[in-house]
Design a protein around this nucleic acid. Structure first.
Lengths: 211, 211
DNA sequence: ACCTGAACACCGTTCAAGT
DNA sequence: ACCTGAACACCGTTCAAGT
């Protein structure tokens, strides 16, 4: 638009530019605010220019997910008890997810991302469990439960229908009621709720020989 | 296509036809197999004819979600202990979700559906908790934890990238490895995993004065 | 009320060509 | 290697018109 580039001229993009701007678009206008075309528009290139940096939209989103996970604070495996370590890593993950609420539905849709950072976190969790004497199948069970619980809970904090556009639900009766489980909660209440359930899970996981 | 209807002729559709066929399309070809246009094609009507039965695609999907939840087996609140009742209702929900794997990402995206059937299940859970002496905020906490856990776990059983089209991930090295948490599990293993975590949660929730 | 025709404003992606 | 132009095969939704 502004600088009318012609045929052979370069825009000087990098893959980082593409990812960063994509995240910006999502932050600004939600999940469907990000299209290959809107992204290209923002970067001031033609839509198909993006395919020099990303094989397709799916890969672009995978990149976003993994980039967010990179900021999860993984405590050194030696410090503290395994329970504390697991609690810390899940809580940090929860907070990172909250900082990227709009990505949460995507994590859920592809059940937890597959990138290198996801693997890194999984490995740390396994080593913490191993230090607590839990290995093999039982350890993998525990990891799955914890991941599912954490992402799922982050989804609760996600404003309903981020990805949904026209949500003109019919006007309710006299009292417009709360959601199924009485959803309107503060972020603090939800965090406390998360912590409570996490403790239950960790107690169960780490209980001597599964109770 | 087949019977060339003209201007004023009716196709004789019902809302049920629309919902049923929509579910068929999803079962056959996944989430992006369902578009307003593909649905209309299957029903042999023009795309905009659907808007006589459904205000938009979002509402259509909400209808699908609630219809699935209608089949959840809610045990009579009197039979057995609250723990058994809660376990039964969550297990039934889990099974229903597994029977509709392709809908799970949608449940997650809108965090648990809002229809009448969702409300019905929530109310039953609350009354079971109440019978166990858990009310108010604590009860709502527990409901949220259980719902999130159940939907989240169903997501684990969902084949990765149901909604993702072109998943030509790069070919791995010598050994094509497992997913982050070692995902390739049988349905039975996952169900057992679900049951284990559910027990942990119920133990925590129903423990005398939160331990 | 239920349906069609035609259109609007979009999508993601590919193919060929330029430097 | 990086980019544009142009096109393909789609979307969801609306508006006007027919019976």
């Amino acid at each position: 638009m502004s600088t009318p580039r012609t045929r052979g001229q370069r825009a000087g993009l990098t893959r980082q530019d593409v990812l960063t701007t994509a995240q910006q678009l999502i932050s600004e206008s939600g999940l469907d605010g990000l299209t290959m075309r809107s992204l290209a528009r923002r970067l001031d290139v033609a839509p198909n220019a993006l395919y020099s940096y990303v094989p397709n939209k799916t890969a672009l989103i995978d990149g976003l997910l993994d980039e967010a996970l990179a900021t999860v604070d993984a405590p050194p495996p030696e410090a503290g008890t395994p329970a504390d370590g697991l609690s810390a890593i899940m809580t940090s993950t929860y907070e990172v997810l909250l900082a990227h609420v709009d990505l949460v539905p995507l994590y859920l849709a592809r059940q937890g991302a597959r990138g290198p950072n996801a693997r890194r976190l999984g490995d740390i969790m396994l080593s913490l469990l191993s230090a607590a004497g839990i290995t093999d199948a039982a350890a993998h069970e525990a990891v799955r439960v914890l991941i599912v619980y954490t992402i799922g809970f982050a989804a609760l904090a996600t404003p309903p229908s981020l990805a949904v556009t026209s949500a003109d639900t019919e006007v309710a009766g006299p009292h417009s009621e709360t959601t199924p489980a009485g959803l309107p909660l503060s972020a603090d209440e939800l965090s406390a709720n998360f912590a409570t359930g996490l403790r239950w899970l960790l107690d169960g996981i780490l209980a001597p020989t599964s109770r």
